[in-house]
Design a protein around this nucleic acid. Sequence first.
DNA 1: TCAAAAGTGTTAATAGTACACCCATGA
DNA 2: TCATGGGTGTACTATTAACACTTTTGA
Lengths: 225, 225
Amino acid sequence: MTTYYNVNPQFYVSVDCIIFGFDKGSLKLLLLKRNFEPAKGQWSLMGGFVQKNESVDEAAQRVLKELTGLENVYMEQVGTYGEIHRDPGERVISVAYSALININEYDKELVARYNASWTDMNAIPPLIFDHHDMVERALAWIRKKASSEPVGFELLPELFTLTQLQSLYEAIYGKSIDKRNFRKQIAMMDYIEKTDLIDKTGSKRGAALYRFNEKTYRLAPKFKL
Amino acid sequence: MTTYYNVNPQFYVSVDCIIFGFDKGSLKLLLLKRNFEPAKGQWSLMGGFVQKNESVDEAAQRVLKELTGLENVYMEQVGTYGEIHRDPGERVISVAYSALININEYDKELVARYNASWTDMNAIPPLIFDHHDMVERALAWIRKKASSEPVGFELLPELFTLTQLQSLYEAIYGKSIDKRNFRKQIAMMDYIEKTDLIDKTGSKRGAALYRFNEKTYRLAPKFKL
DNA sequence: TCAAAAGTGTTAATAGTACACCCATGA
DNA sequence: TCATGGGTGTACTATTAACACTTTTGA
Protein backbone atom coordinates (compact mmCIF):
# COMPACT_ATOMS: atom_id res chain seq x y z
CA MET A 1 0.00 0.00 0.00
CA THR A 2 1.16 3.46 -0.85
CA THR A 3 1.21 5.90 2.02
CA TYR A 4 2.09 9.52 2.53
CA TYR A 5 5.50 8.35 3.66
CA ASN A 6 6.59 5.40 1.60
CA VAL A 7 6.60 7.14 -1.76
CA ASN A 8 9.68 8.90 -0.43
CA PRO A 9 13.26 7.66 -0.27
CA GLN A 10 15.15 6.92 2.91
CA PHE A 11 18.70 7.80 3.83
CA TYR A 12 21.47 6.82 6.14
CA VAL A 13 21.81 9.50 8.79
CA SER A 14 25.01 9.92 10.72
CA VAL A 15 26.40 12.19 13.40
CA ASP A 16 29.90 13.63 13.44
CA CYS A 17 31.49 15.11 16.54
CA ILE A 18 33.79 18.09 16.65
CA ILE A 19 35.35 17.46 20.06
CA PHE A 20 37.01 20.45 21.65
CA GLY A 21 39.59 20.34 24.40
CA PHE A 22 41.92 22.91 25.89
CA ASP A 23 45.47 22.26 26.95
CA LYS A 24 48.66 24.25 27.38
CA GLY A 25 47.25 27.44 26.00
CA SER A 26 45.64 26.07 22.90
CA LEU A 27 42.33 24.75 21.70
CA LYS A 28 42.50 21.21 20.42
CA LEU A 29 40.30 18.85 18.49
CA LEU A 30 40.11 15.12 19.01
CA LEU A 31 40.58 13.60 15.55
CA LEU A 32 40.78 10.03 14.33
CA LYS A 33 43.49 8.63 12.16
CA ARG A 34 41.15 6.00 10.87
CA ASN A 35 42.29 2.45 11.51
CA PHE A 36 39.16 1.10 9.84
CA GLU A 37 37.47 1.29 6.46
CA PRO A 38 36.34 3.30 4.61
CA ALA A 39 39.05 5.93 4.18
CA LYS A 40 41.40 3.94 6.40
CA GLY A 41 44.58 5.85 7.18
CA GLN A 42 42.99 9.24 6.67
CA TRP A 43 42.01 11.79 9.29
CA SER A 44 38.38 12.31 10.20
CA LEU A 45 36.00 13.37 12.92
CA MET A 46 34.48 10.73 15.17
CA GLY A 47 31.16 9.71 13.72
CA GLY A 48 28.54 7.01 13.62
CA PHE A 49 25.16 6.15 12.20
CA VAL A 50 21.86 7.03 13.82
CA GLN A 51 20.03 3.87 14.92
CA LYS A 52 16.33 3.13 15.17
CA ASN A 53 16.18 3.18 18.94
CA GLU A 54 17.68 6.59 19.53
CA SER A 55 17.10 10.21 18.65
CA VAL A 56 19.72 12.05 16.64
CA ASP A 57 20.92 13.91 19.73
CA GLU A 58 21.18 10.61 21.57
CA ALA A 59 23.20 9.15 18.73
CA ALA A 60 25.65 12.02 19.09
CA GLN A 61 25.99 11.36 22.82
CA ARG A 62 26.46 7.66 22.19
CA VAL A 63 29.12 8.19 19.55
CA LEU A 64 30.96 10.61 21.81
CA LYS A 65 30.83 8.06 24.61
CA GLU A 66 32.18 5.33 22.33
CA LEU A 67 35.31 7.36 21.81
CA THR A 68 35.79 9.10 25.14
CA GLY A 69 33.82 7.12 27.69
CA LEU A 70 32.13 10.37 28.73
CA GLU A 71 28.42 10.89 29.29
CA ASN A 72 26.31 14.03 29.67
CA VAL A 73 28.78 16.09 27.76
CA TYR A 74 27.91 19.58 26.60
CA MET A 75 27.03 19.14 22.93
CA GLU A 76 25.27 21.30 20.44
CA GLN A 77 24.30 20.90 16.81
CA VAL A 78 26.33 23.03 14.49
CA GLY A 79 24.76 22.02 11.21
CA THR A 80 23.43 19.31 8.96
CA TYR A 81 25.36 18.30 5.88
CA GLY A 82 23.24 16.94 3.09
CA GLU A 83 25.12 17.21 -0.19
CA ILE A 84 24.35 14.23 -2.40
CA HIS A 85 27.92 13.02 -2.86
CA ARG A 86 29.47 14.24 0.37
CA ASP A 87 30.28 10.62 1.24
CA PRO A 88 31.56 8.97 -1.94
CA GLY A 89 30.56 5.50 -0.74
CA GLU A 90 26.84 5.97 -0.21
CA ARG A 91 24.50 8.84 0.33
CA VAL A 92 24.69 9.78 4.00
CA ILE A 93 23.17 12.86 5.60
CA SER A 94 25.22 13.92 8.58
CA VAL A 95 24.43 16.07 11.56
CA ALA A 96 27.52 17.73 13.04
CA TYR A 97 27.80 18.35 16.79
CA SER A 98 30.29 20.36 18.77
CA ALA A 99 31.29 18.79 22.06
CA LEU A 100 33.22 20.52 24.84
CA ILE A 101 35.17 18.28 27.17
CA ASN A 102 37.73 18.59 29.91
CA ILE A 103 40.87 17.31 28.28
CA ASN A 104 42.02 15.60 31.48
CA GLU A 105 38.98 13.42 31.86
CA TYR A 106 38.45 10.94 29.10
CA ASP A 107 39.12 7.26 28.56
CA LYS A 108 42.59 7.06 27.08
CA GLU A 109 42.29 3.38 26.23
CA LEU A 110 39.24 3.92 24.07
CA VAL A 111 40.88 6.86 22.38
CA ALA A 112 43.96 4.78 21.66
CA ARG A 113 41.81 1.98 20.28
CA TYR A 114 40.27 4.37 17.78
CA ASN A 115 43.70 5.77 17.00
CA ALA A 116 42.50 9.24 17.93
CA SER A 117 44.62 12.13 19.08
CA TRP A 118 44.42 15.75 20.08
CA THR A 119 45.37 18.15 17.35
CA ASP A 120 46.04 21.83 17.76
CA MET A 121 43.23 23.92 16.31
CA ASN A 122 45.78 25.85 14.29
CA ALA A 123 47.25 22.75 12.66
CA ILE A 124 44.30 20.67 11.50
CA PRO A 125 45.35 18.03 8.95
CA PRO A 126 43.31 17.43 5.78
CA LEU A 127 40.11 15.63 6.72
CA ILE A 128 37.83 13.31 4.77
CA PHE A 129 34.60 14.37 3.06
CA ASP A 130 33.26 17.69 4.27
CA HIS A 131 34.67 17.32 7.77
CA HIS A 132 36.81 20.38 7.31
CA ASP A 133 33.68 22.47 6.68
CA MET A 134 32.21 21.06 9.87
CA VAL A 135 35.31 22.06 11.80
CA GLU A 136 35.22 25.57 10.36
CA ARG A 137 31.62 25.93 11.35
CA ALA A 138 32.32 24.59 14.83
CA LEU A 139 35.11 27.12 15.26
CA ALA A 140 32.83 29.97 14.26
CA TRP A 141 30.25 28.52 16.61
CA ILE A 142 32.54 28.29 19.63
CA ARG A 143 33.79 31.86 19.14
CA LYS A 144 30.26 33.21 19.14
CA LYS A 145 29.03 30.92 21.85
CA ALA A 146 31.90 31.45 24.24
CA SER A 147 31.47 35.20 24.01
CA SER A 148 27.84 35.20 25.06
CA GLU A 149 27.37 32.14 27.26
CA PRO A 150 29.52 30.56 29.94
CA VAL A 151 30.40 27.41 28.03
CA GLY A 152 34.15 27.77 28.34
CA PHE A 153 34.06 26.16 31.77
CA GLU A 154 33.21 22.87 30.11
CA LEU A 155 36.74 22.88 28.75
CA LEU A 156 38.40 23.50 32.11
CA PRO A 157 38.70 21.49 35.30
CA GLU A 158 36.08 22.25 37.92
CA LEU A 159 38.65 24.40 39.70
CA PHE A 160 40.71 26.73 37.58
CA THR A 161 42.87 29.80 37.91
CA LEU A 162 42.06 33.11 36.27
CA THR A 163 45.20 32.78 34.20
CA GLN A 164 43.90 29.50 32.82
CA LEU A 165 40.53 31.03 32.06
CA GLN A 166 42.12 33.98 30.31
CA SER A 167 44.42 31.71 28.36
CA LEU A 168 41.38 29.72 27.21
CA TYR A 169 39.66 32.84 25.91
CA GLU A 170 42.83 33.96 24.23
CA ALA A 171 42.97 30.60 22.46
CA ILE A 172 39.33 30.78 21.39
CA TYR A 173 39.59 34.30 20.01
CA GLY A 174 43.14 33.93 18.77
CA LYS A 175 44.29 37.18 20.34
CA SER A 176 45.71 38.35 23.61
CA ILE A 177 43.56 39.95 26.26
CA ASP A 178 44.54 42.58 28.82
CA LYS A 179 44.93 40.87 32.16
CA ARG A 180 43.52 43.66 34.31
CA ASN A 181 40.50 44.28 32.12
CA PHE A 182 39.82 40.55 31.96
CA ARG A 183 39.96 40.16 35.73
CA LYS A 184 37.74 43.19 36.18
CA GLN A 185 35.10 41.52 34.02
CA ILE A 186 35.38 38.28 35.93
CA ALA A 187 35.12 40.07 39.26
CA MET A 188 31.71 41.37 38.19
CA MET A 189 30.41 37.86 37.58
CA ASP A 190 29.44 36.69 41.01
CA TYR A 191 28.84 33.16 39.75
CA ILE A 192 32.58 32.81 39.21
CA GLU A 193 33.52 32.10 42.77
CA LYS A 194 36.92 32.35 44.32
CA THR A 195 37.69 29.36 46.51
CA ASP A 196 40.27 29.40 49.28
CA LEU A 197 42.31 26.80 47.43
CA ILE A 198 45.61 27.61 45.81
CA ASP A 199 47.04 26.07 42.69
CA LYS A 200 50.80 25.74 43.02
CA THR A 201 51.44 23.88 39.79
CA GLY A 202 51.41 26.90 37.54
CA SER A 203 53.66 29.21 39.50
CA LYS A 204 55.85 29.44 42.55
CA ARG A 205 53.67 31.98 44.19
CA GLY A 206 50.48 30.03 43.62
CA ALA A 207 47.21 31.23 42.13
CA ALA A 208 43.72 31.28 43.61
CA LEU A 209 41.37 28.61 42.26
CA TYR A 210 37.91 29.61 41.07
CA ARG A 211 34.81 27.66 40.24
CA PHE A 212 31.77 28.34 38.09
CA ASN A 213 28.56 28.20 40.10
CA GLU A 214 25.84 27.26 37.67
CA LYS A 215 23.00 27.77 40.13
CA THR A 216 24.07 31.32 40.85
CA TYR A 217 24.46 31.92 37.14
CA ARG A 218 20.92 30.81 36.43
CA LEU A 219 19.53 33.37 38.83
CA ALA A 220 20.91 36.16 36.66
CA PRO A 221 22.24 34.67 33.46
CA LYS A 222 24.36 37.48 32.07
CA PHE A 223 27.66 36.75 30.47
CA LYS A 224 29.92 38.65 28.13
CA LEU A 225 33.61 38.08 27.40
CA MET B 1 26.80 -8.54 1.05
CA THR B 2 27.25 -6.69 4.25
CA THR B 3 28.97 -3.34 3.90
CA TYR B 4 30.00 -0.57 6.22
CA TYR B 5 26.76 1.17 5.34
CA ASN B 6 24.01 -1.38 5.00
CA VAL B 7 24.12 -2.72 8.52
CA ASN B 8 22.57 0.62 9.45
CA PRO B 9 18.95 1.73 9.23
CA GLN B 10 17.66 4.38 6.89
CA PHE B 11 15.23 7.19 7.61
CA TYR B 12 12.86 9.54 5.90
CA VAL B 13 14.38 12.99 5.97
CA SER B 14 12.24 16.07 5.59
CA VAL B 15 12.69 19.81 5.56
CA ASP B 16 10.38 22.31 7.25
CA CYS B 17 10.37 25.99 6.43
CA ILE B 18 9.82 28.82 8.88
CA ILE B 19 8.93 31.52 6.38
CA PHE B 20 9.24 35.07 7.67
CA GLY B 21 7.58 38.10 6.18
CA PHE B 22 7.10 41.66 7.37
CA ASP B 23 3.97 43.70 6.89
CA LYS B 24 2.25 46.62 8.59
CA GLY B 25 4.65 46.77 11.47
CA SER B 26 4.73 43.12 12.37
CA LEU B 27 6.69 40.00 11.66
CA LYS B 28 4.62 37.23 10.14
CA LEU B 29 4.98 33.56 9.42
CA LEU B 30 3.51 31.76 6.45
CA LEU B 31 1.67 28.77 7.90
CA LEU B 32 -0.44 26.04 6.34
CA LYS B 33 -3.88 25.07 7.46
CA ARG B 34 -3.39 21.62 6.07
CA ASN B 35 -5.90 20.62 3.41
CA PHE B 36 -4.17 17.26 3.01
CA GLU B 37 -3.35 14.24 5.14
CA PRO B 38 -1.85 13.56 7.59
CA ALA B 39 -3.01 16.01 10.24
CA LYS B 40 -5.52 17.53 7.82
CA GLY B 41 -7.18 20.63 9.25
CA GLN B 42 -4.33 21.41 11.60
CA TRP B 43 -1.75 24.16 11.33
CA SER B 44 1.80 23.35 10.32
CA LEU B 45 4.92 24.67 8.68
CA MET B 46 5.46 24.05 4.98
CA GLY B 47 7.52 20.91 4.60
CA GLY B 48 8.50 18.12 2.29
CA PHE B 49 10.68 15.07 1.98
CA VAL B 50 14.24 15.11 0.78
CA GLN B 51 14.54 13.25 -2.53
CA LYS B 52 17.42 11.28 -3.97
CA ASN B 53 18.35 13.82 -6.62
CA GLU B 54 18.80 16.82 -4.35
CA SER B 55 20.82 17.93 -1.37
CA VAL B 56 19.02 18.80 1.85
CA ASP B 57 19.53 22.52 1.22
CA GLU B 58 18.14 22.09 -2.29
CA ALA B 59 15.12 20.28 -0.89
CA ALA B 60 14.45 23.27 1.34
CA GLN B 61 14.66 25.63 -1.64
CA ARG B 62 12.37 23.37 -3.66
CA VAL B 63 9.78 23.11 -0.92
CA LEU B 64 9.83 26.85 -0.45
CA LYS B 65 9.36 27.31 -4.18
CA GLU B 66 6.44 24.88 -4.20
CA LEU B 67 4.59 27.14 -1.81
CA THR B 68 5.72 30.60 -2.83
CA GLY B 69 7.03 30.32 -6.37
CA LEU B 70 10.22 32.05 -5.19
CA GLU B 71 13.76 30.96 -5.97
CA ASN B 72 17.13 31.95 -4.50
CA VAL B 73 15.56 32.94 -1.25
CA TYR B 74 17.70 33.67 1.80
CA MET B 75 17.45 30.50 3.85
CA GLU B 76 19.44 29.15 6.74
CA GLN B 77 19.30 25.98 8.79
CA VAL B 78 18.06 26.52 12.29
CA GLY B 79 18.25 22.96 13.54
CA THR B 80 17.65 19.29 12.96
CA TYR B 81 14.87 17.54 14.79
CA GLY B 82 15.46 13.88 15.37
CA GLU B 83 13.30 12.65 18.22
CA ILE B 84 12.08 9.10 17.54
CA HIS B 85 8.37 9.80 17.75
CA ARG B 86 8.28 13.43 16.69
CA ASP B 87 6.07 12.42 13.75
CA PRO B 88 3.52 9.93 15.08
CA GLY B 89 3.02 8.38 11.64
CA GLU B 90 6.53 7.24 10.83
CA ARG B 91 10.00 8.07 11.97
CA VAL B 92 11.04 11.22 10.10
CA ILE B 93 14.13 13.29 10.78
CA SER B 94 13.49 16.88 9.87
CA VAL B 95 15.81 19.77 9.11
CA ALA B 96 14.26 23.17 9.86
CA TYR B 97 15.12 26.20 7.75
CA SER B 98 14.34 29.85 8.27
CA ALA B 99 13.45 31.71 5.08
CA LEU B 100 13.22 35.49 4.74
CA ILE B 101 10.99 36.76 1.96
CA ASN B 102 9.54 40.04 0.80
CA ILE B 103 5.89 39.69 1.64
CA ASN B 104 4.82 41.48 -1.53
CA GLU B 105 6.47 39.07 -3.89
CA TYR B 106 5.15 35.59 -3.79
CA ASP B 107 2.74 33.52 -5.81
CA LYS B 108 -0.65 34.02 -4.21
CA GLU B 109 -2.30 31.27 -6.21
CA LEU B 110 0.11 28.65 -4.95
CA VAL B 111 -0.28 29.87 -1.42
CA ALA B 112 -4.06 29.68 -1.73
CA ARG B 113 -3.82 26.17 -3.14
CA TYR B 114 -1.91 25.04 -0.06
CA ASN B 115 -4.35 26.91 2.15
CA ALA B 116 -1.51 28.90 3.64
CA SER B 117 -1.73 32.29 5.25
CA TRP B 118 0.34 34.89 7.02
CA THR B 119 0.07 34.79 10.76
CA ASP B 120 1.29 37.44 13.13
CA MET B 121 4.36 36.28 15.02
CA ASN B 122 2.63 37.15 18.28
CA ALA B 123 -0.41 34.99 17.57
CA ILE B 124 0.91 31.67 16.36
CA PRO B 125 -1.76 28.95 16.54
CA PRO B 126 -0.96 25.48 17.90
CA LEU B 127 1.15 23.61 15.36
CA ILE B 128 1.57 19.92 14.66
CA PHE B 129 4.47 17.80 15.93
CA ASP B 130 7.45 19.84 17.10
CA HIS B 131 6.81 22.69 14.71
CA HIS B 132 6.30 25.08 17.58
CA ASP B 133 9.83 24.33 18.81
CA MET B 134 11.11 25.04 15.34
CA VAL B 135 9.33 28.39 15.31
CA GLU B 136 10.73 29.29 18.73
CA ARG B 137 14.20 28.48 17.54
CA ALA B 138 13.71 30.46 14.36
CA LEU B 139 12.58 33.47 16.36
CA ALA B 140 15.65 33.29 18.56
CA TRP B 141 17.69 32.87 15.41
CA ILE B 142 16.28 35.92 13.62
CA ARG B 143 16.76 38.13 16.67
CA LYS B 144 20.42 37.21 16.92
CA LYS B 145 21.00 37.21 13.20
CA ALA B 146 19.29 40.51 12.48
CA SER B 147 21.34 42.22 15.17
CA SER B 148 24.69 41.22 13.73
CA GLU B 149 24.17 40.79 10.00
CA PRO B 150 22.19 42.78 7.46
CA VAL B 151 19.56 40.15 6.76
CA GLY B 152 16.57 42.35 7.52
CA PHE B 153 16.66 43.76 4.01
CA GLU B 154 15.49 40.39 2.71
CA LEU B 155 12.16 41.14 4.35
CA LEU B 156 11.78 44.58 2.77
CA PRO B 157 11.33 45.76 -0.79
CA GLU B 158 14.52 46.72 -2.58
CA LEU B 159 13.71 50.37 -1.85
CA PHE B 160 12.55 51.18 1.63
CA THR B 161 12.18 54.15 3.94
CA LEU B 162 14.03 54.48 7.22
CA THR B 163 10.71 54.38 9.03
CA GLN B 164 10.00 50.99 7.47
CA LEU B 165 13.43 49.71 8.42
CA GLN B 166 13.04 50.93 11.98
CA SER B 167 9.58 49.42 12.21
CA LEU B 168 11.02 46.09 11.05
CA TYR B 169 13.64 46.11 13.79
CA GLU B 170 11.06 47.08 16.35
CA ALA B 171 9.01 44.08 15.29
CA ILE B 172 11.97 41.74 15.45
CA TYR B 173 13.07 42.88 18.89
CA GLY B 174 9.58 43.49 20.17
CA LYS B 175 10.42 46.92 21.54
CA SER B 176 10.46 50.48 20.34
CA ILE B 177 13.63 52.17 19.20
CA ASP B 178 14.52 55.86 19.42
CA LYS B 179 14.19 57.37 15.96
CA ARG B 180 17.16 59.71 16.15
CA ASN B 181 19.51 57.12 17.55
CA PHE B 182 18.37 54.61 14.97
CA ARG B 183 18.97 57.02 12.10
CA LYS B 184 22.35 57.95 13.51
CA GLN B 185 23.36 54.28 13.33
CA ILE B 186 22.07 53.91 9.80
CA ALA B 187 23.88 57.06 8.67
CA MET B 188 27.15 55.42 9.69
CA MET B 189 26.51 52.44 7.41
CA ASP B 190 27.58 53.70 4.04
CA TYR B 191 26.20 50.61 2.34
CA ILE B 192 22.69 51.79 3.17
CA GLU B 193 22.36 54.28 0.37
CA LYS B 194 19.92 57.11 0.12
CA THR B 195 18.38 57.28 -3.34
CA ASP B 196 16.83 60.43 -4.77
CA LEU B 197 13.48 58.68 -4.90
CA ILE B 198 10.63 59.59 -2.60
CA ASP B 199 7.98 57.31 -1.22
CA LYS B 200 4.69 59.17 -0.99
CA THR B 201 2.56 56.24 0.08
CA GLY B 202 3.44 56.38 3.73
CA SER B 203 3.04 60.09 4.38
CA LYS B 204 1.99 63.34 2.81
CA ARG B 205 5.41 64.83 2.99
CA GLY B 206 7.08 61.80 1.46
CA ALA B 207 10.09 59.88 2.77
CA ALA B 208 13.44 59.25 1.14
CA LEU B 209 13.91 55.74 -0.20
CA TYR B 210 17.07 53.83 0.66
CA ARG B 211 18.64 50.71 -0.70
CA PHE B 212 21.08 48.17 0.69
CA ASN B 213 24.23 47.94 -1.41
CA GLU B 214 25.59 44.46 -0.88
CA LYS B 215 28.82 45.09 -2.78
CA THR B 216 29.70 48.05 -0.62
CA TYR B 217 28.80 46.03 2.46
CA ARG B 218 31.17 43.24 1.50
CA LEU B 219 34.09 45.65 1.34
CA ALA B 220 33.69 46.38 5.04
CA PRO B 221 31.14 44.00 6.49
CA LYS B 222 30.30 45.61 9.77
CA PHE B 223 26.75 45.68 11.01
CA LYS B 224 25.15 46.21 14.40
CA LEU B 225 21.60 47.15 15.20
C1' DT C 1 68.84 36.86 44.44
C1' DC C 2 66.32 36.39 40.69
C1' DA C 3 63.14 34.46 37.41
C1' DA C 4 58.31 33.64 36.73
C1' DA C 5 53.66 34.05 37.27
C1' DA C 6 50.02 36.49 40.43
C1' DG C 7 47.75 40.28 41.49
C1' DT C 8 46.03 45.12 41.44
C1' DG C 9 43.48 51.05 39.68
C1' DT C 10 43.18 54.93 37.08
C1' DT C 11 42.39 57.54 33.03
C1' DA C 12 40.95 58.32 28.29
C1' DA C 13 38.17 57.08 24.45
C1' DT C 14 34.16 55.23 22.58
C1' DA C 15 29.58 53.79 22.27
C1' DG C 16 25.04 54.02 23.74
C1' DT C 17 20.99 56.38 25.60
C1' DA C 18 17.70 60.00 26.55
C1' DC C 19 15.26 63.61 24.92
C1' DA C 20 11.84 67.73 21.76
C1' DC C 21 11.03 70.42 18.14
C1' DC C 22 10.41 72.08 13.16
C1' DC C 23 9.23 70.56 8.25
C1' DA C 24 6.50 69.49 4.20
C1' DT C 25 2.35 68.15 2.40
C1' DG C 26 -2.45 66.58 1.09
C1' DA C 27 -6.84 66.49 2.68
C1' DT D 1 -5.16 75.11 8.66
C1' DC D 2 -4.19 71.16 10.61
C1' DA D 3 -3.13 66.36 11.14
C1' DT D 4 0.41 63.15 9.84
C1' DG D 5 4.61 61.14 9.42
C1' DG D 6 9.64 62.94 8.09
C1' DG D 7 13.58 64.67 9.57
C1' DT D 8 17.26 66.62 12.72
C1' DG D 9 21.50 67.49 17.32
C1' DT D 10 23.22 67.67 21.88
C1' DA D 11 24.32 66.34 26.56
C1' DC D 12 24.79 62.56 29.68
C1' DT D 13 25.96 57.87 30.99
C1' DA D 14 27.99 53.50 30.58
C1' DT D 15 31.19 50.59 28.65
C1' DT D 16 35.52 49.45 26.85
C1' DA D 17 40.42 50.01 26.13
C1' DA D 18 45.02 51.36 27.31
C1' DC D 19 48.54 51.15 30.40
C1' DA D 20 52.99 49.41 34.65
C1' DC D 21 54.36 48.18 38.77
C1' DT D 22 54.54 45.29 43.23
C1' DT D 23 54.14 40.62 45.38
C1' DT D 24 55.37 35.96 46.41
C1' DT D 25 58.20 32.08 46.35
C1' DG D 26 60.99 28.06 44.79
C1' DA D 27 65.06 27.11 42.52
